[in-house]
Amino acid sequence: MTAYTATVTVRLKHGVLDPEAETTKQALERLGFDLEDLRSADRFEIDLEADSADAARERADEMAERLLANPTIHDYDVEVDER
């Protein structure tokens, strides 16, 4: 078994309105920053032990499917690193 950290990033699907990101963008503009667009995402860092990086990825993937993301509105990606 090897120790891994699986990083799951959950984002709203392209085209789904993100009012919090829009509000954040406006606040940055009010502070005088120049920006074109802003997207926010949730990032989950999951420490786990698995036989291989693929096995760790598969487990994190299922966690995203079943809880961390809502497939109706979210896309997600998973990255796995040895700890």
């Binding site: 789904v16 309105l17 993100d18 009012p19 919090e20 829009e22 509000t23 809502n70 109706t72 509105i73």
Partner: peptide, 17 residues
């Protein structure tokens, strides 16, 4: 209900935030 699959779709942040 939507999160559990009883009904389709999702309820998320109001447009007004």
């Amino acid at each position: 209900g939507c999160e559990s699959g009883l009904t389709d779709g999702a309820f998320t942040t109001n447009e007004s935030a």
